[in-house]
Design a protein around this nucleic acid. Structure first.
Lengths: 255, 255
DNA sequence: CGTTATCTTGAGACCAGTCAATGATTGTGG
DNA sequence: CCACAATCATTGACTGGTCTCAAGATAACG
């Protein structure tokens, strides 16, 4: 988890990055002489497109954002969602590797990339943290791979709900979790179709695992069962092949 | 692409990181006062396990390595392969987030993580590069998501072959590409079964798209067709839903 | 309150997985 | 160096889960 706050006078930026698992939480301050800019976006407006020059570093103030990646032929894959407090663009490189789009009306903050990195360059500790944050994102991407490749549709959706729920809980919201994205977004994200997502939502509803309110609100009623569905493996063949070789004993430290 | 070389006297380390797409290639030197250690591993030996304390930074000298991630319940997902010259562990964090295992007899080099990062900390430019490398890996992970979620089995394997081929070409090897991993590894990596992989290999063979030599060697005969298979989308529903909203025009720079 | 977009639900088809048997490679011991 | 064993790859018949296509219900929004 990482958050950016504009300070009161808007001339100093405090960037806080909490520690990863097993690491003591750390808080770092990055000073730079440019204020954060604000901007409101309507639903469906893009913050940036894949391939665009990367000009700014962004953070979600309010609303909801989806990230997606395009193939050569125009198909797209949703690769993530961003809630308030989270970074939207945090890539180091000249061009954006994916697109970011507001799902609902959204408020963003930003500072120029050059300013951000110029300030960061003066602070090695901050840079190490930055690297750490990227590694976290990498872990998340690997998680997504696991979800798509090794679970059936029900497992994927159960895992998705639990993750969304956990992220919302971390931000201290109420029981109902908001899913501002469309069913089609969830489907795309998980490599399914919206029909399948819909069917499984109703199936979970009938089993009293979740409660659905309106189009965008759900509440988890039975996290235990959901977890077992997410961890259940449909087929031992596809899922595992955990032949002996994969779990061999640790070797002496390479040294 | 990034490579590490132990210098002649083994007391200095030169780390070279080539530029990413669109960036001028850069070469950075990182000096530290500890020699790289070497170690030979037999096939199937682990370099480290997921959850282990991260003690060293590694690079493949010769051989072949696979990376995989474990779910709670013991299933695993192959998340990458590493050839000579590539880093195996390059995470910043106290514990490894995945396991690394030699596929065939492999020679590794390593230095303690603490030494590596202590030296790196003195060099902000190097740290920025480090961050950049992590972003590259993140892009690769997103690519893998795309491959698994948005392609059918043939498309996945065609894409896989093209990637392996490109990586081998970058290292300047001959026509035949070595696939030291088992069919099951490829299948696991792509979210398929080894039977399906096998079927598609023979299918491609019959169509004269590839030539197979022994168990581990393949040569691409018709990259053009393979590319079209990789880019072909089996079903417009699953693949796209590229509703108008996804391709809206760029907005003015957020500023 | 009506229009539109989204969601739900159903019936049928197809791709990839499952199970099982055969064939090819690799490695080992006599 | 060869024969045998073990592992891995291939192939076939069958099953099943998810996609596809199409219709109807619900929710969002002006």
């Amino acid at each position: 988890m990482n958050r950016i706050f504009g300070s009161a006078n808007d001339l100093t930026v405090a960037l806080r990055v909490n520690g990863a698992d097993g690491m003591p939480p750390a808080s770092l301050e990055l000073d730079c002489s440019v204020p954060w800019s604000r901007r409101k976006l309507a639903a469906r407006q893009h913050i940036f497109h894949q391939g665009d020059e990367q000009s700014h570093v962004y953070v979600v103030k309010s609303g909801f954002v989806r990230l997606y990646s395009l193939l050569n032929n125009g198909r797209c894959q949703v690769i993530g969602f961003k809630s308030p407090g989270e970074f939207v663009a945090f890539e180091y490189g000249s061009r954006h590797r994916f697109s970011a789009q507001a799902v609902v009306a959204t408020e963003m903050r930003s500072i120029p990339t050059a300013v951000f990195f110029a300030a960061a360059s003066c602070d090695p500790q901050f840079l190490l943290r930055l690297y750490n944050v990227a590694c976290e994102d990498l872990s998340r991407a690997h998680e997504l791979v696991l979800t798509i490749a090794k679970r059936d549709a029900e497992g994927s959706i159960a895992a998705f709900m639990l993750e969304i729920d956990a992220r919302a809980a971390a931000r201290g919201k109420g029981d109902f979790v908001s899913l501002p994205m469309l069913r089609g977004d969830i489907a795309n994200y998980l490599g399914l179709t919206n029909e399948t997502v819909s069917r499984i939502f109703t199936h979970f509803k009938k089993r009293r695992l979740i409660e659905v309110r309106g189009r965008y609100g759900i509440r988890l009623l039975d996290r235990r069962t959901l977890r077992s569905i997410a961890e259940h493996v449909p087929s031992d063949r596809k899922a595992m092949d955990l032949e002996s070789s994969y779990v061999a004993r640790p070797m002496a430290a390479l040294c």
